[in-house]
Structure formats: C-alpha cells, structure tokens
Design a protein around this nucleic acid. Sequence first.
DNA 1: TACCAGGAGAAAA
DNA 2: TTTTCTCATGGT
Length: 222
Amino acid sequence: MELDRGALEGVYAALLTHHGPQGWWPAESDFEVVVGAVLIQRTAWRNAEQGLAALRAAGLLTADALAASSARRIEALVRPAGFYRQKAARLSAVARWLVARGGLARLAELADDELEAAWLALPGIGPETAAVICLYAFGRPLFVVDAYARRTFARLGWIGGDEPGPTLRRACEQALDANAATYNEYHALIVAHAKTHCRPTPRCAGCPLLRYCAHPAGTASR
DNA sequence: TACCAGGAGAAAA
DNA sequence: TTTTCTCATGGT
C-alpha cells in the first residue's frame, strides 16, 4: 500500500495548527515512558496514569527498584490500569531485563533496527509498544501505528482500516522523511485529534482535516 | 447491563 | 496464515 506524502504532510500541518504542539510523551523520565507504554495497553490513559502515579508514589519508577519489587506489590499498584497480572509480569520482566542489559543508556548504543528487535523479543512487548518505546524513550524515527492512527486514516478514506500494522507503518515511513521529532508530534496530534474530533458520527463538522477527507462532503464512516 | 478504551499472545480454525 | 479468545478495570 502507498500513502500520499502531500496529504500526510498536510494533515500534520493542519493538526499542528489546530491542536498546537503536544509535547509528548507525558513522562518525567525515559524509564517512565517504558512503564507508561506497557500500562497503556488496551486501556484509557486515565487508567494507565493511575498505575503510573501509584508506582511513582511507591518509588518504583526506576528499573532497579521495579526489578527488586515483588510481582504481588506491582500487581496491587498497577491494578487501576487493568490486566494487572499481565502488566505487572511484563513490567517486572522489562525491569529485570533492563538491569541485566546495563540500563536504557546501554541500549541506546544499538542501531534502530537492533533496538526495536531487542524490545520485540521481550514478553508482552508487541509492535506498537516497541514503536512507542523506541520513538519516545530513545528518539528513534519509528512511526507509531495504533488504534487512533488506524481510525483517523480510515475515516479520511485513505485506508480500509484492516491493514496489518507493519504495512501501514511502512507506508507512513516511506511517505514521510525519517524524522523522530515529526513522528513524535504526529502521533501525539493524532491522539489529541481522535479524542476531540471525528467521533463516530455521520459528519465531522468543524474538523480541521475535512479537506483531506476522501469521503464526499466530509462524510466519514466509522 | 453492555460497550468501549492507545495490545499482546496463545490457541484454534 | 488468519481468526478468535483471554486478560480486567473504570467510565458512560
């Protein structure tokens, strides 16, 4: 599949004008980005944030502290984020792996592909989570394709919506320059936009992306 | 009560 | 290879 460079750049500009810079990722450290990327899996940010706040209050937002903590304790703290047993196990595994690997700084020595592959090899770290970590914690140019991006592009009529994530990501990265700062802002803007516009209604009145919509008169499906 | 919200992995078809 | 199911909470 192929995406139009001009349209992608136009949507980016329109979103930036409309919503302003988002300053993502909302975290106080790179390790917190990693933890947040796991906690956000299949839940709303509000719930993930509660888990993050609990871990912070418990002093567990460092790899060393989290690796040394018991699974039970982590489970109790991240419970508001849902799937708490899975997420606690994943966070524990990630923390222990990071300690063994010498921390985030040592991982930063890896090339983009190696870094992504390293994260993907971990249990519970799939394509989206790995992309978020590589982009927001390491500043690597990986375009994040998540449910919001898929929905946004589908509503614009650019894609069907059921394309495999890697296919959609490749299309975005082929159409855009490999620029981590742009990818960072683009994903954040898509999330901001999806939360304020283009809800599942017949028409997206006032939507800044109307001119890029392939549907007649801005009518959007889904 | 039912559905939805920024996934991933295992099992089944 | 693709589809289905499971994991769980909180808000609407």
